[in-house]
């Protein structure tokens, strides 16, 4: 009898101990993941003297927003010294139409591929998937030449076009996988009643598509906003997206390196997608993991 109490209390102790270790490991992990963001923020509010005097995680002696101001409106991103603001708006001008158009086309495509199949549509879908997997390096040279022929080289329109073309395989995939689980009976009943292609889409399909639109828009927004490859290859000096401008700011430095300005610029580039993640994290994660583990 005394034996059993002894062993159970020692077991309790070992359970508590393992909980402590568990939380300790998780805490270390949390610190590791948060550290770069904290460092970026702290550095962006310091003066250069403060940066040299302190270290990565030292609290700024005085919180100043001079670096943010400079990053936004007067830092040099190559030849120009007008900050990242113009490029921030470029990114919006690229992202908004690219996301909306590719999402809308994806919805229509997904609708056709599940509810209006025709001979060859399944095969086409298989072919289209391939577009999700190719390394884009394998298409950029022909695309650069094509955009040149069309007079779209170095234009926002050209970049939007590229993002739509290569984003569509993803958006179609999202919508197709969503619509596959919508009962076909719903659609075929409406067809018998004489409802046409767009009527069914508007009246039956669109009203239930809310969640997948959110997932798809968030996904595309993150993809297009964060893109660098297309931006650096297809945009010109004044149509560059923020990622390209940020890279220029950080990696082509003349004179003294201003780490506080670099960090402020990086934060500016990161804010829109971070904001989306904070506001709609649930949908963001759903987009990331959609379909990967089930089945």
């Amino acid at each position: 009898m005394p034996n059993t109490t002894a062993s159970s209390s020692s077991m309790n102790r070992s359970v508590t101990l393992s909980r402590v270790v568990l939380y300790a490991i998780l805490l270390i992990a949390v610190v590791f993941y948060l550290m770069p963001l904290v460092v970026m923020l702290l550095t962006s509010f310091k003066s250069m003297a403060d940066i040299r005097g302190g270290n990565l995680v030292s609290i700024p002696q005085e919180f100043i927003i001079a670096a943010w101001d400079k990053a936004w409106s007067s830092a040099c991103t190559g030849v120009e010294c007008a900050g990242v603001a113009p490029f921030f708006w470029n990114s919006f001008q690229i992202t908004v139409p690219a996301v909306l158009i590719s999402t809308f086309l994806g919805a229509l495509n997904g609708y056709v591929l599940t509810k209006w199949k025709f001979r060859g549509s399944d095969i086409f879908f298989g072919l289209m998937l391939f577009g999700c997997f190719i390394p884009f390096q394998v298409v950029i040279l022909p695309m650069a030449q094509t955009l040149g022929w069309l007079g779209l080289a170095n234009t926002t329109t050209g970049l939007v076009f590229v993002h739509i073309v290569y984003g569509m395989s993803f958006t179609t995939l999202f919508f197709r996988n969503f619509y596959v689980s919508v009962p076909t009976e719903l659609v075929s009943a409406a067809k018998i009643d004489g409802a046409g292609f767009f009527t069914i889409f508007r009246r039956i399909i669109l009203p239930i598509s809310g969640p997948i639109f959110v997932v798809c828009i968030i996904w595309q927004f993150t993809q297009v906003w964060n893109d660098f490859l297309f931006g650096v290859v297809f945009s010109g000096g004044d149509t560059q997206p923020i990622t390209v401008a940020l890279n220029n700011l950080v990696n082509t430095s003349h004179g003294v390196k201003e780490y506080n300005v670099d960090m402020a610029a990086a934060m500016i580039a990161a804010l829109p997608t971070l904001l989306v993640y904070v506001l709609a994290g649930k949908y963001f994660v759903r987009g990331l993991t959609a379909g990967s583990v089930k089945g």
Partner: peptide, 28 residues
């Protein structure tokens, strides 16, 4: 905790690279 683990996925690799370039800066 999950939110903290996942937020880097929302960032551009350019932002990630810029941040780590500073963190790994030899000297400062």
């Amino acid at each position: 905790i999950r939110t903290v683990f996942l937020y880097p996925m929302a960032l551009s690799f350019i932002v990630t690279g810029t941040a780590w370039k500073w963190i790994l800066n030899p000297g400062l």
